[in-house]
Design a binder for these strands. Structure first.
Lengths: 232, 232
DNA sequence: TCGAAAATTAAGTATAGACATAATCTGCGA
DNA sequence: TCGCAGATTATGTCTATACTTAATTTTCGA
């Protein structure tokens, strides 16, 4: 039961309590919105708001006509933010530095073309940009990027502003893929990131699209010791 | 303008179009809910639903009385699911195997106690579990875990079912911290994961709580080649 | 001029009622 | 028995209205 006035948050909390305490066990059907509204003495819309929120969070599964049931395996979702690297560094209280290492048109490797869904042979060459982000003058992250030249034409210069920052600020992207992995530093990476050859490095591959237009495929390789952290 | 009946999704789409096309530029204040409701010929609640959704997605910032403004740096959020490792492996179409390597009470290292907020000296010993998850009989992931013995007492046996699976299925956790990083395989890791010493390994640290009760702190270290993938 | 109190404002939430939509279930006919 | 049409049902959504809450702005007194 809920004391006092019923808000959708209090109703959500009570529903979560019933799920956790197994009053509503995994897989079980829970009462209809109308019944719950009556039980708690509130409008159905309020119940709907609470249950919808729990469904979004993965605790419940809802289907029209089928009713609402407790998720069998509560899939916990972790979210983290894709920010501008400069802000990431400055947020740690460190000084930001940036160095452009390469910027040229070149034929992209097959796996990059595949990730960007450019297998039809269009756009034979992509713009390749390599840049280093520094924190307190020490290498922090190496950005290795393939760009759709139709989106970031040759008039655009990445000498002062990184492609990362320009893209986040100016291109509306609608979706993409993300991959996290560990890689060993080869000779070139070790030189750029000022670490030992063979060092274990954290890396992120990211492909972005705006609608169906391929925008960019980037690999961010971080200097040793980097941790990507988030809360659940 | 929106053709036909106005749903909160169509309104959301139109608002997003205005943000992307810079009709509503970054940082700018957008019209009030009441004004938009009038413009689109719908109820304010419908506008609220659409704008609230865009705010949750990071496109807008809303404050009571302050109104709604377009986010200066659209923070993109990626979400991924925390699943049972067995399901992860089976989802790849591989056969799942499991081997318990260690299970004992032991004093936990300081950093583990700190992560679990056990710095007051209570619970001098925690339950330590080490287990290997195999995919098609090859090492896939090493689970190295500290457990609150009050939650997973000695009566509970992890010979057949991994602590990972038992916890996901039986413990309601409310929150925790997550960290991703790369680490080099030391001699012990190399032996367990059947890889070369010094290999770059992807690892995840996870701390979980139920309310304020510490549940577990785990490190999952994956065999070489593992990629954590998700979509945006 | 300064600062606190009061007024104002825009989002947040609750409600009753209505209709839409997708599943599911029922019953009929072949 | 099978399959499809139609009835049923639970969630999804929209509306109009009212009230709440947080924050800003204005006002007014010291």
């Amino acid at each position: 039961m809920i004391a006092g006035s019923v808000t959708w948050q209090s109703l959500r909390a009570e529903a979560l309590r019933r799920i956790r305490s197994r009053i509503w066990p995994p897989g079980a059907q829970i009462p209809h919105e109308a019944d719950l509204a009556e039980e708690f003495g509130c409008a159905r819309a309020t119940v709907n708001r609470a249950l919808r929120d729990l469904a979004e969070a993965g605790y419940l599964e809802r289907r029209r006509k089928g009713g609402t049931r407790v998720a069998l395996t509560p899939v916990r979702k972790a979210t983290f933010e894709i920010s501008i690297i400069r802000q990431d560094i400055e947020g740690r209280g460190q000084g930001y530095g940036y160095r452009l290492l390469a910027d040229r048109l070149a034929p992209a490797p097959t796996e990059v073309r595949k990730a960007l869904r450019l297998m039809d042979g269009s756009m034979s060459e992509l713009r390749f940009v390599r840049a280093l982000h520094l924190a307190d003058d020490r290498p922090f992250c190496l950005e290795s990027r393939w760009l759709n030249p139709a989106v970031a034409g040759p008039g655009l210069c990445f000498d002062a502003q990184s492609a990362n920052e320009w893209l986040v600020r100016n291109i509306a992207f609608s979706g993409g893929d993300l991959g996290f992995y560990a890689r060993a530093a080869d000779r070139a990476l070790a030189a750029d990131l000022a670490c030992d050859e063979g060092a274990a490095l954290f890396a992120v591959d990211r492909t972005t699209f705006s609608d169906t237009t391929p925008i960019t495929a980037v690999t961010l390789t971080y200097a040793p010791g980097y941790r990507l952290v988030t809360e659940m």
